[in-house]
Design a protein around this nucleic acid. Structure first.
Lengths: 118, 118
DNA sequence: ATTCTATTTGAACGATTGTTCAAATAGAAT
DNA sequence: ATTCTATTTGAACAATCGTTCAAATAGAAT
């Protein structure tokens, strides 16, 4: 039960300094990483994954349809659609007082389909 | 400025009842959705995405290497590695008092590479 | 103009997340 | 046995997230 002395580096790892230096160099920049994690985290949510799934099979859906399909309040669906819209994952089209949403690009459709195929 | 009467359903959407019924039927179950969102949300984090990137290029790395590459405390790296391990994304191998981590399958490697290619 | 409609919004709230810190563990070396 | 080593863990904490609720908006119909 002796309290360990704290070390800020570990000696053993300096053996792998080459690996570390190499990987530090080729590690994508924070902005590139940010760009991919926003897509992954957009799909890393039950509601949004389901919305994207629905829109990957139906050309366009209104907010009310989506909330019906998912069993959500209209407000909850609208909030998530706004997030997806901010991320350019879906687009919105006004028609009278109805609003229709569609997938913005098929990249996301492929990503989800690929994950579901697993 | 008159407060609207609240409605629990919207009439217009009942026109699309077929779409809604169809999509409700083919919507993947919650457990299937859960299965894919855990992978997406695992990659939807800066630290974990970087760890996976590093391990996708280097066969195996110890915790200390990883924390050096990412500029993280060892503790923070270890916590995230545990999450990735719980999700079966990485595997761990003890060697003396060193612990080496590797990617568990190349599916994740492909997913990340594909996202970075965009 | 007002009252429908569908949708959006902001505030509130609890739930989940990610990092830090301190302490614990387990193997290796003394 | 103790003291290194590398790593793990649990608690704490702020930050972010997702839903609900109430109210706002904007177009269509009256």
């Amino acid at each position: 039960m002796k309290k360990n002395r704290l070390k800020d580096t570990c000696d053993v790892c300096s053996i792998d300094k080459k690996k570390v230096t190499k990987l530090k160099k080729i590690m994508p920049s924070d902005s590139v990483i940010k760009g991919i994690i926003v897509i992954f985290s957009a799909l890393g949510n039950k509601t949004r994954a389901k919305i994207v799934f629905a829109l990957s099979l139906e050309e366009r859906l209104c907010v009310c349809d989506i909330s019906n399909i998912l069993g959500l309040t209209i407000s909850a669906a609208s909030h998530q659609l706004r997030k997806l819209r901010d991320l350019k994952i879906v687009t919105r089209k006004n028609e009278g007082n109805m609003v229709y949403y569609s997938l913005n690009n098929s990249y996301i459709r492929g990503l989800l389909a690929n994950a579901l195929r697993k």
